[in-house]
Design a protein around this nucleic acid. Sequence first.
DNA 1: GCGATGTGGGAAAAGGTTTTCTCAAAAGGG
DNA 2: CCCTTTTGAGAAAACCTTTTCCCACATCGC
Lengths: 349, 349
Amino acid sequence: MSADAQPAPVSAKPPVTLREVAAAAGVSVATASKALNGQGRMTAETRERIRETARLLGFRPNSLAQSLLRKRSFTVGLLTNDTYGRFSLPLMAGVSDALVDNGVSVFLCNVEDDTRLGQLHVEAMLDKRVDGIIATGKRIDRHLPVDLSNLRIPVVYAFTQPDPGAVGLVSDDAGGARLAVEHFVRLGRRRIAHVTGPASFAVVHTRAEAYRDVLRENGLAVSEPLLGAWSEGWGHEAVEKLFGKAGREGWPDAVFCGNDQIARGVIDALRERGIRVPEDVGVVGFDNWEIVAEATRPPLTSVDMNLSTLGREAGLALLSLVGGQWAAPGIRKLPCRLVVRQSCGSPPG
Amino acid sequence: MSADAQPAPVSAKPPVTLREVAAAAGVSVATASKALNGQGRMTAETRERIRETARLLGFRPNSLAQSLLRKRSFTVGLLTNDTYGRFSLPLMAGVSDALVDNGVSVFLCNVEDDTRLGQLHVEAMLDKRVDGIIATGKRIDRHLPVDLSNLRIPVVYAFTQPDPGAVGLVSDDAGGARLAVEHFVRLGRRRIAHVTGPASFAVVHTRAEAYRDVLRENGLAVSEPLLGAWSEGWGHEAVEKLFGKAGREGWPDAVFCGNDQIARGVIDALRERGIRVPEDVGVVGFDNWEIVAEATRPPLTSVDMNLSTLGREAGLALLSLVGGQWAAPGIRKLPCRLVVRQSCGSPPG
DNA sequence: GCGATGTGGGAAAAGGTTTTCTCAAAAGGG
DNA sequence: CCCTTTTGAGAAAACCTTTTCCCACATCGC
């Protein structure tokens, strides 16, 4: 090895500690600590000198040591089983956004649907003394595959089934469905169909119920929702069922779809049949998954569940629980919003 | 407040410490520690008794204290600017998978394209004494909006532009393109077009180069790649350009697309023109984004960048760096694979 | 029975920070 | 000039675990 060889690993000198700052400023660690935290009493001159020294040395307190003492790590865990992040990522963005200003970081863990993995991650979080946990998932009527009910740290459930007595935030699916159907009604559509996902999903029923309510409230004929899959393929099939029969008179003039993929299938199938969207038939989707909604022709009007707001609220709720504040248990529903694009046309006349 | 009011917050008793275990087992903390870690010397009986006590009490060592002492937190940070997680999530799954077995957790931080936010998160990670950082992004020819070059902890770059001298892992885009074009050649296609993204992306040129190479190697006519956007809309337009001209003889019999969305647009546009896929024209996409690839009709054959493998390798590389091992700096390219579905047909005859 | 060896287990320091308590000096009151 | 109060700053404990030493006791060989 030559004399000017690199020192073995990259690792430069270790981080500068409070002790070093204190030494450099000619005070005790206690005084240094107080100076930097704005605690204790000392001359303004001393305080400033210590601060300046710390700045010069690039001092940053060791979070590990702080957390150990304060019994707060300023870290929260975010648990999800939504592999593709379609729902969790906007939610996480909201959570992160709400917490970063409070100096809190977020640990994301994907537990898939694996209980063992879930348990593993939860224990790791507990060991690392996270201040709280936000549980989220890909559907609001299922639990994560892991028990969070007796955790000695606060837990908030967002967009997943909460444990009884816990704080839960979900989207207001009924409200979202109303938004869509009422939009159609306002535009003068009279024969509004509903094509949605499988019966095993609670939201399918929630939304169908709201759909029926709005139709009845407006004196319109209620046709049975078509349940199927959450796929484009099912959208195609549903168009077959709805528009296959001869009498053009019986055709719907609007289709409210359970998600954007179904809507995309519906729109494509209508175009193939020469049925114009939005002139002949209006279409509304659900989820406002931009990558899909903006690629349909015409671009898809869709119900947005405001997941990042949901995440933000979840973050704030957790924060106040961590702070010892009481938060109302039970499920809180947050409103959706309708993102209007071009698949429904304008009011008649 | 009534007598049977709930104790203020949920928080039950604090976690059990090593000291309590030691007391319960009638030994010193030192002995207890050694018993649980398989260190030191003591009778098997003593060791077992301590272990049993710990188990009974549900003792879990405080990671914070351990990390403080060992100067390793068994945590790594994952930095990304890929908001939708299309690339980062598979990558993160791989990273997480590689590390969880080593008892290492992963901190995911989305820094968007915001330097201030990035700096903030990096500092938070440093303060929390993460053992290393994996940087990832949404394209391999751009840096994250944050400087990781002098960090005193190891950094590995995955699917983003590495700093000079650092360890970087990216997909082998040239190889991926070869896979696609050679697949066409093998199937007997002779006039192979290439529709891809904007010139500002390095991969556009890398793949185009490989595309031309394969054509030349096989004595086929090389037509200029069509550069545009990464969207379905561009796929439609490109079909217009390629198949708009009169002479059916000049039409391509295969289109290699720069991503799955373009491919989807191409396939849809072809169908609208009555051109059959795969009989008349074969189509291959890139990214193997299942949600798109499986929804095209017919399902799309696509190049998969093996991002979760990439993540796994990145995790392992970081781990060995953290362990003080030396790792070869520079960019390592990991092979892609072709996922064959139905958009290319079978060999002729 | 005495020194050498081995064995089981404990005391204490370390890691970096915060906080409480204490204390010396300075200032103020009479 | 003496006593009390205030002020500035330090010593030390605490958080929880790991690890290095060290010690007492038992065993063994002679």
